[in-house]
Design a protein around this nucleic acid. Structure first.
Lengths: 227, 227
DNA sequence: GTCAACTTTGTTGTAGACAATCTTGCAGTG
DNA sequence: CACTGCAAGATTGTCTACAACAAAGTTGAC
């Protein structure tokens, strides 16, 4: 995240700034709770303050950052309760997406899903949780794309952007990984069988299992230490 | 929508502008497709251009307005396809809300819902579709509040803000009104019975019926004239 | 030593000006 | 008559400067 040498094209400073900040949050370069001082962002991104300002407003609307009048913006920090709520909302919306995917997925979509599934299985065998998480992200992305449901896609994109902090915690729960893999298999099978009801049901079951795990993990860690 | 006499409090110009514009769209004072010239809004709202600008950015993020670089903003105009998608997303999310409402609704919430239901029945008898629509809006609002699911509430709020144009069209379909009333009754009954599954199912059935009606209405009108 | 009021510093909110870009109307040409 | 190119006006994007505010630090009285 450095100032670029050449000038940006007029009219794109704001969206550049928006995307760059969003990525920075998603990739963990900006952590929840961190202050976002406008002047600093201006230096880092090499854009005007107006662009930074409106980008922050958009990110607030999306739920990625919080702003208080005269006190600036910071990366939003979720409570466990909110994280669970977001997972529930995701379950509802990705259920819808899975239903549509079952009706509209192309053979190529299915090939892609199966390919990711194989990679996930390999990661599960090796215990490579980091790469597994990455595959998981791609899996859901491909499936939502395959649904061709732009509204659901937009909402899910914003929901996932808010979840950075809890993204990695659930897979690490003991015994969760093989189950997760199985749940993903069930989803692909239902989509491949062009069975909308089964697709939605399996997706919801999957994300509700994740929510349940998160609840469990949260309960345990809160007894030991506050992260 | 006139310039206010007294000065606005510092730090609230932007959110004032955001809310005012949002209301204007929801109440139909700004119609889909209409251009939103910054200088004009500045005059109307009595705030600085920066405030207008960031407010427009937020509204774009919410899907209420569209902006193109160097070409300004206009109130977003949905295609029927997008309207149907939004209703599908609403069905998924309000289904979730209904499920939670069945578990968390207080006696007062239920009294409010039943009161609205009675008013709706009266409107249906008299054929007062305008007031029926207003009751319908309140019904869904109360139910979402009763669910105590902030994430779903936020998402639904933004979805409803995008639907202005199609809000009134579905109730006007012949024979739809009595069915709509019955569907709402079923939802309240399920919530009152504290049956989450039934609550979710009846809400989804309701909104999917609305989506189906919209599809039907859209098909018919598109054969006659483009609205 | 403690607390309150004041000052300082860092940061945000707002206004105004200017330049880049788009749009529109018009003239000229094939 | 249709079409292209140009000029004027309108509108947006960006920059700079300054005022208002919050938080932290400092002084002074008790």
């Amino acid at each position: 995240m450095r100032a670029k040498g050449r000038r940006l094209q007029r009219g794109h400073g704001e969206s550049y700034c928006y995307q760059e900040l969003r990525r920075a949050v998603l990739e963990g370069r900006l952590v929840p709770g961190q202050r976002l001082v406008e002047a600093e962002l201006v230096r880092m991104l090499g854009v005007g303050r107006a662009a930074v300002r409106t980008a922050l407003a958009r990110l607030e609307q999306e739920g990625v950052v919080e702003r208080a009048p005269n006190r600036g913006a910071r990366v939003r920090l979720l409570t466990e309760q909110e994280a669970v709520e977001i997972l529930e909302a995701r379950a509802a919306l990705e259920g819808l997406a899975a239903r549509h995917a079952a009706q509209r997925a192309t053979p190529q979509d299915l090939r892609q899903l199966r390919s990711i599934l194989r990679e996930m299985a390999a990661c599960a065998r090796k215990g490579d949780t980091f790469r597994y998480t990455e595959c998981n992200r791609r899996f859901h992305e491909v499936l939502v794309t395959a649904s061709r449901h732009l509204t659901a896609a937009r909402l899910l994109d914003s929901l996932r952007a808010q979840m950075v902090r809890y993204q990695y915690r659930t897979v690490l729960a003991p015994g969760r990984l093989p189950r997760s893999l199985q749940e993903h298999r069930a989803i692909v099978d239902a989509v491949a069988a062009k069975d909308p009801d089964a697709a939605e049901a399996s997706m919801r079951a999957h994300l509700e299992a994740v929510a349940a795990t998160l609840r469990e993990v949260a309960r345990q860690t809160s007894e030991v230490a506050i992260p």
